[in-house]
Amino acid sequence: MFFSIDPQNGVAIYEQLIRQVKFGVAEGTLRPGQLLPSARVLSQQLAINPNTINRAFQQLQLDGVLESIRGKGLAVGPRALASCRKARQSLLEVRIREVLSEALHAGLAPDEVRQMVLKQLGELKGKVPTVSSTVAEETG
């Protein structure tokens, strides 16, 4: 999986990594059991400090998204999918909240905002590819 790190967008680098891994799992790009590259390899690929990467990995392990496999490294945990989806959901909720509060702050009425949202949803229907439905729902 390709990561893209932008050190200047205000989000901590390790936080960006965490989010991207979680999104990747949620999207299905990272499957359960898939090995992640080692911190060293990643640091070379992305040109970021391996300490930072390790920190992200540690956090991901605590969150249950990754688990350590003896002799091989870190792999996506079997129960990661649900929590990642949840995480993605909450992140997206935060973003929607931000957009909505910006709209309200600009002076739009809630009805106007609702109309805008419905309009946009209508225009986007069918045009945005989703995570493939062939991805099996995780069991358990």
Binding site: A39, R40, S43, A47, N49, P50, N51
Partner: peptide, 10 residues
Amino acid sequence: FLESLLDRVA
């Protein structure tokens, strides 16, 4: 250069 450095840090 960066890659070499980071290799060391790792």
